[in-house]
Protein backbone atom coordinates (compact mmCIF):
# COMPACT_ATOMS: atom_id res chain seq x y z
CA UNK A 1 0.00 0.00 0.00
CA UNK A 2 1.17 3.47 -0.91
CA UNK A 3 -0.09 4.89 2.39
CA UNK A 4 1.85 2.43 4.51
CA UNK A 5 5.07 3.01 2.60
CA UNK A 6 4.63 6.76 3.03
CA UNK A 7 4.24 6.29 6.77
CA UNK A 8 7.31 4.11 6.65
CA UNK A 9 9.34 6.93 5.08
CA UNK A 10 8.35 9.20 7.95
CA UNK A 11 9.45 6.63 10.51
CA UNK A 12 12.75 5.78 8.86
CA UNK A 13 13.74 9.32 7.99
CA UNK A 14 12.59 11.42 10.94
CA UNK A 15 14.04 14.50 9.33
CA UNK A 16 11.14 14.47 6.87
CA UNK A 17 8.84 14.98 9.82
CA UNK A 18 10.74 18.12 10.61
CA UNK A 19 10.45 19.33 7.04
CA UNK A 20 6.68 18.72 7.02
CA UNK A 21 6.29 20.34 10.41
CA UNK A 22 8.09 23.52 9.37
CA UNK A 23 6.27 23.67 6.08
CA UNK A 24 2.97 23.18 7.89
CA UNK A 25 3.64 25.88 10.44
CA UNK A 26 4.67 28.39 7.78
CA UNK A 27 1.58 27.80 5.68
CA UNK A 28 -0.61 27.49 8.77
CA UNK A 29 0.28 31.03 9.77
CA UNK A 30 -1.49 32.30 6.66
CA UNK A 31 -4.50 30.05 7.35
CA UNK A 32 -4.66 31.52 10.84
CA UNK A 33 -4.69 35.02 9.38
CA UNK A 34 -7.72 34.34 7.17
CA UNK A 35 -9.43 32.48 10.01
CA UNK A 36 -8.86 35.45 12.30
CA UNK A 37 -10.77 37.61 9.84
CA UNK A 38 -13.64 35.13 9.89
CA UNK A 39 -13.60 35.01 13.67
CA UNK A 40 -13.92 38.78 13.60
CA UNK A 41 -17.03 38.97 11.39
CA UNK A 42 -18.50 35.90 13.05
CA UNK A 43 -18.03 37.25 16.54
CA UNK A 44 -18.95 40.86 15.87
CA UNK A 45 -21.63 40.60 13.20
CA UNK A 46 -22.70 36.97 13.53
CA UNK A 47 -22.21 36.55 9.79
CA UNK A 48 -20.75 33.28 8.59
CA UNK A 49 -18.93 34.43 5.53
CA UNK A 50 -18.69 31.70 2.89
CA UNK A 51 -16.90 34.11 0.54
CA UNK A 52 -13.96 34.23 2.93
CA UNK A 53 -11.82 31.97 0.78
CA UNK A 54 -12.69 33.88 -2.37
CA UNK A 55 -11.48 37.11 -0.78
CA UNK A 56 -8.22 35.26 -0.16
CA UNK A 57 -7.99 34.10 -3.76
CA UNK A 58 -8.78 37.62 -4.97
CA UNK A 59 -5.85 38.95 -2.95
CA UNK A 60 -3.74 36.20 -4.46
CA UNK A 61 -4.61 37.24 -8.00
CA UNK A 62 -3.75 40.87 -7.21
CA UNK A 63 -0.24 39.88 -6.10
CA UNK A 64 0.14 37.56 -9.09
CA UNK A 65 -1.08 40.26 -11.49
CA UNK A 66 1.45 42.75 -10.11
CA UNK A 67 4.16 40.12 -10.40
CA UNK A 68 3.27 39.54 -14.06
CA UNK A 69 3.63 43.27 -14.70
CA UNK A 70 7.08 43.60 -13.23
CA UNK A 71 6.13 44.71 -9.75
CA UNK A 72 7.42 42.49 -6.97
CA UNK A 73 4.53 40.46 -5.53
CA UNK A 74 5.51 41.46 -2.02
CA UNK A 75 4.04 44.85 -2.86
CA UNK A 76 0.91 42.89 -3.56
CA UNK A 77 0.38 42.48 0.18
CA UNK A 78 -0.39 46.16 0.93
CA UNK A 79 -2.05 46.64 -2.45
CA UNK A 80 -4.34 43.63 -1.93
CA UNK A 81 -5.04 44.88 1.59
CA UNK A 82 -6.22 48.23 0.25
CA UNK A 83 -8.17 46.93 -2.75
CA UNK A 84 -9.92 44.26 -0.72
CA UNK A 85 -10.70 46.84 1.95
CA UNK A 86 -12.63 48.83 -0.64
CA UNK A 87 -14.20 45.68 -2.03
CA UNK A 88 -15.30 44.62 1.44
CA UNK A 89 -16.81 48.04 2.00
CA UNK A 90 -18.71 47.78 -1.27
CA UNK A 91 -20.02 44.29 -0.47
CA UNK A 92 -21.12 45.41 2.98
CA UNK A 93 -22.92 48.50 1.69
CA UNK A 94 -24.71 46.65 -1.10
CA UNK A 95 -25.45 43.24 0.37
CA UNK A 96 -24.32 42.38 3.87
CA UNK A 97 -26.06 45.23 5.66
CA UNK A 98 -29.35 43.89 4.34
CA UNK A 99 -28.88 40.36 5.61
CA UNK A 100 -27.17 41.08 8.90
CA UNK A 101 -30.34 41.00 11.00
CA UNK A 102 -31.93 38.11 9.12
CA UNK A 103 -31.49 34.47 10.07
CA UNK A 104 -28.09 32.86 9.77
CA UNK A 105 -28.88 30.80 6.71
CA UNK A 106 -29.64 33.99 4.81
CA UNK A 107 -26.18 35.42 5.33
CA UNK A 108 -24.66 32.04 4.64
CA UNK A 109 -26.45 31.75 1.32
CA UNK A 110 -25.87 35.37 0.34
CA UNK A 111 -22.14 35.01 0.91
CA UNK A 112 -22.24 31.73 -1.00
CA UNK A 113 -23.66 33.70 -3.93
CA UNK A 114 -20.92 36.29 -3.58
CA UNK A 115 -18.35 33.50 -3.53
CA UNK A 116 -19.77 32.09 -6.75
CA UNK A 117 -19.66 35.49 -8.47
CA UNK A 118 -16.06 36.16 -7.40
CA UNK A 119 -14.73 32.76 -8.38
CA UNK A 120 -16.48 32.81 -11.75
CA UNK A 121 -15.31 36.34 -12.53
CA UNK A 122 -11.74 35.36 -11.70
CA UNK A 123 -12.17 32.35 -13.95
CA UNK A 124 -13.34 34.54 -16.83
CA UNK A 125 -10.52 37.03 -16.30
CA UNK A 126 -7.59 34.73 -15.61
CA UNK A 127 -8.71 31.24 -16.81
CA UNK A 128 -8.76 28.24 -14.56
CA UNK A 129 -5.01 27.52 -14.69
CA UNK A 130 -3.17 27.38 -11.41
CA UNK A 131 -0.82 30.31 -10.86
CA UNK A 132 2.03 31.21 -8.55
CA UNK A 133 3.39 34.69 -8.02
CA UNK A 134 7.15 34.29 -8.42
CA UNK A 135 8.85 36.23 -5.66
CA UNK A 136 12.31 35.14 -6.77
CA UNK A 137 13.76 34.11 -3.42
CA UNK A 138 16.14 31.24 -2.73
CA UNK A 139 15.77 28.30 -0.40
CA UNK A 140 17.90 27.29 2.53
CA UNK A 141 18.89 23.65 2.72
CA UNK A 142 19.60 21.61 5.83
CA UNK A 143 20.51 17.99 6.50
CA UNK A 144 22.15 17.40 3.10
CA UNK A 145 19.26 18.97 1.31
CA UNK A 146 16.70 16.72 2.99
CA UNK A 147 15.02 19.74 4.57
CA UNK A 148 14.55 22.88 2.58
CA UNK A 149 12.98 26.09 3.71
CA UNK A 150 12.01 28.52 1.03
CA UNK A 151 12.94 32.02 2.14
CA UNK A 152 9.71 33.35 0.75
CA UNK A 153 7.77 31.14 3.14
CA UNK A 154 9.63 32.55 6.08
CA UNK A 155 9.02 36.05 4.78
CA UNK A 156 5.34 35.22 4.44
CA UNK A 157 5.31 33.92 7.98
CA UNK A 158 6.86 37.13 9.26
CA UNK A 159 4.44 39.23 7.23
CA UNK A 160 1.49 37.28 8.61
CA UNK A 161 2.77 37.67 12.16
CA UNK A 162 3.35 41.40 11.70
CA UNK A 163 -0.08 41.93 10.22
CA UNK A 164 -1.74 39.93 12.98
CA UNK A 165 0.17 41.87 15.62
CA UNK A 166 -0.85 45.12 13.97
CA UNK A 167 -4.52 44.18 13.88
CA UNK A 168 -4.47 42.96 17.48
CA UNK A 169 -2.82 46.18 18.70
CA UNK A 170 -5.37 48.14 16.76
CA UNK A 171 -8.25 46.21 18.31
CA UNK A 172 -6.83 46.72 21.79
CA UNK A 173 -5.92 50.37 21.67
CA UNK A 174 -7.84 52.33 19.08
CA UNK A 175 -11.29 53.76 19.65
CA UNK A 176 -12.65 51.83 16.69
CA UNK A 177 -11.16 48.64 18.06
CA UNK A 178 -12.88 49.24 21.38
CA UNK A 179 -16.14 49.97 19.64
CA UNK A 180 -15.83 46.71 17.70
CA UNK A 181 -15.21 44.71 20.84
CA UNK A 182 -18.10 46.42 22.61
CA UNK A 183 -20.42 45.62 19.72
CA UNK A 184 -19.29 42.01 19.74
CA UNK A 185 -20.21 41.68 23.40
CA UNK A 186 -23.62 43.31 23.21
CA UNK A 187 -24.71 45.10 20.08
CA UNK A 188 -27.83 46.57 21.64
CA UNK A 189 -26.01 47.97 24.64
CA UNK A 190 -23.33 49.39 22.36
CA UNK A 191 -26.03 51.10 20.32
CA UNK A 192 -27.64 52.57 23.40
CA UNK A 193 -24.29 53.95 24.50
CA UNK A 194 -23.95 55.83 21.26
CA UNK A 195 -21.80 53.51 19.17
CA UNK A 196 -22.77 53.58 15.50
CA UNK A 197 -23.05 49.82 15.08
CA UNK A 198 -23.65 50.08 11.36
CA UNK A 199 -20.31 51.83 11.01
CA UNK A 200 -18.69 49.22 13.22
CA UNK A 201 -20.09 46.40 11.10
CA UNK A 202 -18.98 48.09 7.93
CA UNK A 203 -15.48 48.61 9.30
CA UNK A 204 -15.26 45.04 10.59
CA UNK A 205 -16.32 43.55 7.28
CA UNK A 206 -13.93 45.74 5.32
CA UNK A 207 -11.11 44.89 7.71
CA UNK A 208 -11.86 41.20 7.32
CA UNK A 209 -11.76 41.45 3.53
CA UNK A 210 -8.50 43.38 3.72
CA UNK A 211 -6.91 40.77 6.01
CA UNK A 212 -8.03 38.05 3.63
CA UNK A 213 -6.58 39.98 0.70
CA UNK A 214 -3.20 40.28 2.38
CA UNK A 215 -3.29 36.59 3.32
CA UNK A 216 -4.11 35.77 -0.29
CA UNK A 217 -1.16 37.76 -1.59
CA UNK A 218 1.07 35.71 0.71
CA UNK A 219 -0.57 32.48 -0.43
CA UNK A 220 0.06 33.38 -4.07
CA UNK A 221 3.78 33.63 -3.34
CA UNK A 222 4.19 30.48 -1.27
CA UNK A 223 1.63 28.19 -2.87
CA UNK A 224 -0.65 27.97 -5.90
CA UNK A 225 -3.88 29.82 -6.51
CA UNK A 226 -6.74 29.01 -8.82
CA UNK A 227 -10.18 30.66 -9.15
CA UNK A 228 -12.00 27.72 -7.56
CA UNK A 229 -9.71 27.14 -4.58
CA UNK A 230 -11.69 29.67 -2.57
CA UNK A 231 -14.18 27.20 -1.09
CA UNK A 232 -11.34 25.16 0.40
CA UNK A 233 -10.01 28.27 2.13
CA UNK A 234 -13.48 29.10 3.40
CA UNK A 235 -13.84 25.62 4.84
CA UNK A 236 -10.36 25.86 6.39
CA UNK A 237 -11.35 29.09 8.10
CA UNK A 238 -14.54 27.48 9.35
CA UNK A 239 -12.71 24.48 10.73
CA UNK A 240 -10.22 26.70 12.51
CA UNK A 241 -12.81 29.02 13.99
CA UNK A 242 -15.14 26.20 14.98
CA UNK A 243 -12.32 24.31 16.63
CA UNK A 244 -11.03 27.36 18.49
CA UNK A 245 -14.20 29.35 19.17
CA UNK A 246 -14.43 32.88 17.82
CA UNK A 247 -13.61 34.73 21.01
CA UNK A 248 -10.35 32.91 21.42
CA UNK A 249 -7.45 34.54 19.57
CA UNK A 250 -4.61 32.29 20.78
CA UNK A 251 -6.87 29.36 19.97
CA UNK A 252 -7.38 30.59 16.41
CA UNK A 253 -3.63 30.96 15.90
CA UNK A 254 -2.92 27.53 17.39
CA UNK A 255 -5.69 25.90 15.36
CA UNK A 256 -4.47 27.63 12.20
CA UNK A 257 -0.93 26.39 12.67
CA UNK A 258 -2.25 22.95 13.59
CA UNK A 259 -4.39 22.89 10.47
CA UNK A 260 -1.33 23.68 8.33
CA UNK A 261 0.68 20.89 9.93
CA UNK A 262 -2.16 18.34 9.72
CA UNK A 263 -2.68 19.10 6.06
CA UNK A 264 1.01 18.69 5.29
CA UNK A 265 1.21 15.33 7.02
CA UNK A 266 -2.13 14.20 5.60
CA UNK A 267 -1.14 15.25 2.12
CA UNK A 268 2.19 13.44 2.40
CA UNK A 269 0.68 10.22 3.72
CA UNK A 270 -2.48 10.00 1.63
CA UNK A 271 -1.28 11.73 -1.52
CA UNK A 272 -1.93 15.16 -2.98
CA UNK A 273 -5.27 14.13 -4.53
CA UNK A 274 -6.75 14.00 -1.05
CA UNK A 275 -5.87 17.61 -0.22
CA UNK A 276 -9.48 18.82 -0.30
CA UNK A 277 -10.84 15.62 1.19
CA UNK A 278 -8.52 16.10 4.18
CA UNK A 279 -9.83 19.63 4.75
CA UNK A 280 -13.43 18.47 4.51
CA UNK A 281 -12.66 15.46 6.69
CA UNK A 282 -11.31 17.80 9.36
CA UNK A 283 -14.49 19.86 9.05
CA UNK A 284 -16.70 16.86 9.69
CA UNK A 285 -14.47 15.78 12.55
CA UNK A 286 -14.56 19.19 14.23
CA UNK A 287 -18.34 19.36 13.87
CA UNK A 288 -18.81 15.91 15.35
CA UNK A 289 -16.58 16.72 18.33
CA UNK A 290 -18.42 19.99 18.82
CA UNK A 291 -21.74 18.21 18.76
CA UNK A 292 -20.62 15.71 21.37
CA UNK A 293 -19.49 18.54 23.61
CA UNK A 294 -22.79 20.33 23.19
CA UNK A 295 -24.87 17.32 24.03
CA UNK A 296 -22.98 17.06 27.30
CA UNK A 297 -23.62 20.70 28.25
CA UNK A 298 -27.20 21.17 27.31
CA UNK A 299 -28.04 24.80 26.80
CA UNK A 300 -30.15 26.31 29.54
CA UNK A 301 -33.42 27.85 28.53
CA UNK A 302 -34.35 31.03 30.34
Amino acid sequence: MQILSNINILIEAPVFNLALLIEGLLIGSVFALAAYGLALVWGVMNVKNLAQGDFVIMGGYIAWYLGEHGIHPLFGVPVAFLILWCFGWLIYRTIIYRVIDKDLFTSLLATFGIALVISQLLNLLFSSDTQTADAGFESWFFFDGMVSIAQVKLIAFVCAALLAAGVITFMKNSRMGQAIRATAQDARAAKVLGIDTDKVYCFTFSLNAAICGAAGALIAMIWVIQPFYGITFSIRSFVIVTAAGFGNLPGVIAAGLGMGVLEQFGGFILGATFQQAIVVGLLVLVLVVRQMQQSRHRQVVQ
Binding site: H297, R298, Q299, V300, V301, Q302
Partner: peptide, 13 residues
Protein backbone atom coordinates in the same frame (compact mmCIF):
# COMPACT_ATOMS: atom_id res chain seq x y z
CA UNK B 1 -36.24 28.85 40.80
CA UNK B 2 -35.95 28.50 37.05
CA UNK B 3 -32.71 26.54 37.43
CA UNK B 4 -34.55 24.07 39.65
CA UNK B 5 -37.31 23.81 37.03
CA UNK B 6 -34.76 23.13 34.34
CA UNK B 7 -33.11 20.48 36.49
CA UNK B 8 -36.42 18.72 37.01
CA UNK B 9 -37.40 18.62 33.34
CA UNK B 10 -33.93 17.63 32.18
CA UNK B 11 -32.50 20.72 30.48
CA UNK B 12 -29.19 20.22 32.19
CA UNK B 13 -27.53 17.62 34.38
Amino acid sequence: KTTLFNSIVGYHP
